[in-house]
Design a protein around this nucleic acid. Structure first.
Length: 432
DNA sequence: AAATAGGAACAAC
DNA sequence: GTTGTTCCTATTT
């Protein structure tokens, strides 16, 4: 079998040492170690069942990349491939994302490492912002803008009894993921992408909540809000419009667009794994209680139906037959626009959606919060014990992003970013 | 019916 | 002040 390497995960307690993990999404027993000239990834976390399929557990060596700067990326790719676990039932997913619990290892079914592709073309480079803007805002949008509101009576007390969420560790350090981060995490997690959430145009940052209820439940678990539903989560998403973090893709239900994405985003595209699961709440209704109902759904019970419409949606997608696509470093592409001061400092690269469905009105006001948080993630990463790399993809991804940006700068890319902090754009504050 | 939009009050930090 | 959450009215699909 597999030797038990140095893990943050405590098998005895089924918990990670979460003190440093904050709220970042834990991945089951994957350790990524970085050795000077090679990347060694150990996959562990065997359960009884899993141990029967030990050929799934491999020691994966990733040859160092000649360019050097791709090393981290490859590590991430490989790590991600190790996370290629499908057929995880909803229960374990929700536990997985609940912060309070880690996936019971028995819920994690491993898959062989297959099909890892590093795309050299990755993210499209410079973008002509006008492409994003030339469309007129659809009349429907304009018209729906102003709606007379009646005087409101005072809202009733929240029926939610004080759930007395023990504001535990992950909330302590202010480490809770923001919703947009959470969605990004989901989009990088094979257990939920594309099953519950998927990219429809990764390079444009467009994604779809394939199963909005499930995503909302996961979010609710994450926030310890058992009553969370898509309606509520959707409200939060809509606030992102004003803050320039999200756009709505009009005409497509449950389809949103990140206005910014990390360059190193790991894109899980439809490939070999994970079926998508329509927005069908069959697996649970009493959501909160359902979560603790650990008998539940064997993996097959979920995700039966294929999504047909998808073919329509993914027209613009390049032929990524592979499972993973990691963007190579594209030249940082500021999008000159009405928030010009910020553009040069953006860390992220997006390509315009092929269509002009996007509400350009919501375009890059700029997500200072996003960038700020990205930097924080690097700090988290630095808290990891030496020699023991992160279990979090987020920290990995974003940390590497920052590092590589620094490297890029020293290469004299002509961008004026100097320090991680200078990656950040001035806060564009406030909603409402 | 479900998704969508957004106002408003509120909570937690 | 920020970031949602809850509740709501109203519209659209």
């Amino acid at each position: 079998m597999l030797q038990q390497p140095e893990l943050i995960f405590d098998f005895a307690s089924d918990h990670f040492n979460s003190s440093q993990m904050g709220s970042y999404l834990e991945y089951p027993a994957v350790v990524v170690e970085q050795v000077p000239h090679q990347h060694l990834l150990s996959y562990t976390g065997l359960t009884d069942e899993q141990s029967q399929t030990e050929d799934h557990h491999e020691l994966l060596k990733v040859e160092p990349c000649e360019s050097g700067e791709e090393e981290t990326m490859e590590t991430l790719v490989a790590a991600d491939s190790l996370l290629n676990m499908d057929c995880v039932d909803t229960l374990s997913l929700e536990q997985h994302y609940s912060q309070a619990f880690l996936p019971s290892l028995s819920d994690v079914i491993t898959a062989p490492v297959t099909q890892v592709t590093v795309s050299a073309e990755g993210v499209v480079g410079a973008i002509d912002q006008s492409q994003w803007l030339n469309g007129e805002r659809p009349a429907a949008q304009l018209q729906s803008k102003k709606r007379g509101k009646k005087a409101r009576h005072r809202r009733a007390e929240s029926p939610t009894p004080d759930i007395k969420v023990k504001k535990d560790k992950y909330n302590k350090g202010g480490n809770t993921l923001y919703l947009w981060q959470f969605l990004m995490e989901l989009l990088q997690d094979r257990q939920v992408c594309p099953r519950y959430i998927k990219w429809t145009d990764p390079q444009a940052g467009i994604f779809k909540l394939v199963n909005s209820k499930a995503v909302a439940r996961l979010w609710g678990k994450h926030k310890n809000k058992p009553d969370m539903n898509y309606e509520t989560m959707g409200r939060a998403l809509r606030y992102y419009y004003q803050r320039g973090i999200l756009n709505k893709v009009e005409g497509q239900r449950l389809v949103y667009q990140f206005t910014s994405l990390p360059e190193d985003m790991v894109y899980i595209t439809d490939g070999d794994c994970g079926k998508e699961e329509e927005d069908d709440d069959h697996d649970r209704s009493g959501n909160d209680e359902g979560l603790s109902d650990s008998s539940v759904s064997s993996d097959q019970s979920a995700g039966e139906e294929e999504e047909e419409e998808e073919d329509d949606e993914e027209d613009s997608q390049p032929p990524l037959k592979k499972t993973l696509l990691v963007s190579s470093r594209a030249t940082p592409t500021p999008r000159p626009r009405s928030a010009p001061k910020l553009s040069a400092q953006r860390d992220t690269v997006l390509r315009p959606a092929g269509t002009s469905l996007i509400q350009e009105q919501h375009l890059p006001i700029v997500s200072a919060e996003m960038l700020r948080t990205l930097q924080n993630l690097q700090k988290v990463r630095s808290l990891q014990p030496a020699g023991q790399a992160s279990v979090f993809k987020t920290a990995q991804l974003l940390g590497s992003l920052c590092e590589r940006q620094a490297a890029t700068e020293t290469e004299g890319k002509g961008v004026q970013r100097r320090s991680p902090s200078s990656h950040l754009v001035p806060p564009t504050s406030s909603h409402q």
